[in-house]
Nucleic acid binder design. Structure first.
Lengths: 213, 213
DNA sequence: AATCTACAGTAACATTTATCACAGAAGGAT
DNA sequence: ATCCTTCTGTGATAAATGTTACTGTAGATT
């Protein structure tokens, strides 16, 4: 256990790892579990050691909008921020691949910030990278049209999984981009005609990862 | 001077105020000055003591997109985040009302985080509130159409200045929402017909601040 | 094999937003 | 007062996106 945590969070000091083992509680969740809801109070910070969690925003009409994914070695920035004052969550977190996490009680946050340099740096870096990621999301919806956003979305996915096949239905993609299935189908078809992708049932193969044209 | 800082940042401890006075440099900037550009390296954290700074994202085509405003008693979250590793800025910061600021050299950031509880809390709270604000921006562009976004925009403005008159041209508003002047003119006209605003040259008067209908 | 269901394709149409073109109005400068 | 510039209003049109409706197909179920 100690070994695995150290492997996943290589920058953590040994003392920090030990402290985490001591105070955190290890938990597993199945794909589909909703870990956090908008408006819910947060009592833990979450460190991901296995699997994938989707962080998204929910519209009043029930529409979803993907913000980013959390993967092993990462932590939920929102939970860190809100934790310090036990604020309400502003986002939804859903498990999309069975996960293992360490739940860190909120009281530890402030304490460790002072006591563990490597925790402090991890937290700051988490804030920074998530903030940047969200800014990129803003860019996309503010300045780009749906076809560009779709390309960006597929690229992000293949980057995340490290493979060129994206295993999602058009409906799922549409939901995450907050558009309709028909629009996604149309645009994908156009991309196929341009030779950028190959379409199969429940699977999109990226032919030209570097389609910046 | 000591007095004024304490008045603007009431939660800062006296020792922190003294430290800021000692290490920060007081500077003034005229309206229109660009304090930070995308891609620029950041070497200071900025505390605003007077005036207003606009934080926005710039598209490749030169389009702007308003993120939020910084006002007295606030600090630039981006500069704090980037500062810790002297990262590049991801946003633009432009003075929109003559400002006075305290520039804090980046080396101080980490040091004060450990030494001054009130600084630590201020930084965390700044992260949190800005993150939330950006999430709200995402909501708006992801889920809402232009007429709703325009209403929200006007509301934010009147909230910020504390008055019901928004002194902006249609062109300026269009720029910040990344749309065109004609669209703004048309939507405003409709709002006027619905009795929500009164239109004058370079000025929009909100008649019904609570237009959630 | 027959049936069922989720997924994908596509045409037709509605709506929203962007763009072009131009006219008039307000206020400052001469 | 006249001229100039900026701001505003509005129609016509184009483009992008959303919606409705329907068809076909692959794979699962029976």
């Amino acid at each position: 256990m100690q070994n695995s945590l150290k492997a996943i969070f290589p920058n953590f000091s040994s003392e920090l790892i030990a402290t985490i083992e001591e105070n955190g509680s290890h938990q597993d969740f199945k794909s589909g579990t909703i870990l956090m809801r908008t408006g819910q109070y947060i009592k833990n910070t979450v460190l991901i050691t296995k699997g994938k969690i989707k962080i998204y925003r929910e519209g009043e009409d029930g529409g979803e909008f993907l913000m980013y994914y959390l993967q092993p070695g990462q932590a939920c920035a929102i939970s860190m921020i809100c934790t310090t004052k036990s604020e309400k969550s502003q986002i939804m977190a859903k498990v999309v691949e069975d996960v293992s996490v360490m739940m860190i009680p909120l009281q530890m946050m402030d304490k460790w910030m002072m006591e563990h340099r490597s925790w402090y740096e991890f937290v700051i870096e988490t804030y920074r990278s998530r903030f940047e990621e969200v800014l990129e999301v803003v860019d996309n919806i503010a300045f780009r049209s749906m076809d560009e956003r779709l390309e960006f979305y597929l690229k992000r996915h293949s980057d995340a999984c490290g493979c060129s096949e994206v295993k999602l239905s058009h409906q799922e993609i549409a939901t995450e981009l907050n558009t309709s299935r028909e629009v996604v189908s149309r645009l994908l078809k156009k991309m196929e005609q341009r030779g950028l992708v190959k379409l199969n049932r429940n699977q999109i193969e990226l032919l030209n990862t570097n389609f910046t044209n």
